[in-house]
Amino acid sequence: MKLTVAALVEPGSTRITKTGAWRTFVPVVDHKKCIKCSLCEIYCPESCIHQVDGLFVPDLDYCKGCSVCAHECPRKAIEMVLEEK
């Protein structure tokens, strides 16, 4: 890698860092309870919960396991589970 003049950086390039490695607890979504309010997506600090084929799914590459989504889910459809690695 050659350095850029004035240390300029490309947009969105933190994606190469998979912060999922920080995680202890992993969010597990019960899609039957989900009412698709999208609050989990809105509040996620990692911007890593998205609708995939109509279901809200956390991207475990980046999810730090903070549990904000589980706390904010109005239907308690997300459970934080100790992750076995």
Binding site: L3, A6, A7, L8, V9, E10, P11
Partner: peptide, 16 residues
């Protein structure tokens, strides 16, 4: 959209 003014750690500061 480029990022101006990132912080640089000891591994590259000297080179800048």
């Amino acid at each position: 959209p480029k990022t101006f003014g990132a912080f640089v750690d000891p591994s590259m500061y000297t080179e800048i």
